[in-house]
């Protein structure tokens, strides 16, 4: 087949569409369902209650690369009744897992702070599990101006 001007034109338009479509398929993103599935897995079948746990994150994060996030759970932190672990999930990141804190009665308090990456505006979820089998959850929406997952 000889390349005419017309066929060249359609070829290049096709190629351009292909490139644009290819660029759009960035990192796959988790959904709210994925994050909730993780929460239920962590909770081990117990329905998470609200309260007792406080998740603290900024309402608006200018830079998604470092978003400060802290959790604290009210607990006596004695050998019979303490917070075993607190997991943080983000429902709009490529993978919902962020971090899991494991406490012991020697921690004194069930509170911790770290910095996380957020790809876009999304909900951040914290779930706590106590040694007595109670599960608590808190959720907060963080608006992200510049996403932090690289491209």
């Amino acid at each position: 087949m000889t390349i005419t001007r017309r066929s060249m034109l359609t070829l290049s338009v096709g190629a351009a569409i292909g490139v644009v479509a290819g660029m759009r398929s960035g990192p796959a993103s988790a959904t709210a369902e994925d994050a909730m599935a993780k929460v239920m897995e962590f909770a081990g079948g117990t329905e998470p209650a609200t309260g007792t746990i406080t998740l603290d994150a900024p309402e608006i994060a200018e830079n998604g690369n470092t978003v400060p996030v802290s959790v604290s759970v009210e607990s006596p932190m004695t050998a019979d009744d303490y917070v075993e672990s607190v997991a943080i999930y983000a429902d709009g990141n490529p993978s919902p897992d962020v971090i899991t804190f494991n406490f012991t009665p020697m921690s004194g308090e069930a509170s911790a702070t770290t910095r996380m990456r957020l790809a876009k505006t999304q909900n951040v979820i914290a779930v706590a599990k106590t040694s007595t089998g109670q599960v608590f959850m808190d959720k907060k929406e963080v608006k992200v101006t510049i996403g932090g997952c690289g491209g």
């Binding site: 993978s95 962020v98 971090i99 012991t104 020697m106 921690s107 911790a112 990456r117």
Partner: peptide, 26 residues
């Protein structure tokens, strides 16, 4: 602390570069 675990955490890629952690100990 003196050989006993006080605090630990499992970190995923969603934690920022130069991971910062703040926690308590009795």
């Amino acid at each position: 602390f003196n050989g006993q675990t006080v605090f630990s955490c499992d970190i995923e890629p969603a934690v920022s570069a130069n991971p910062y952690l703040e926690f308590t100990a009795k």
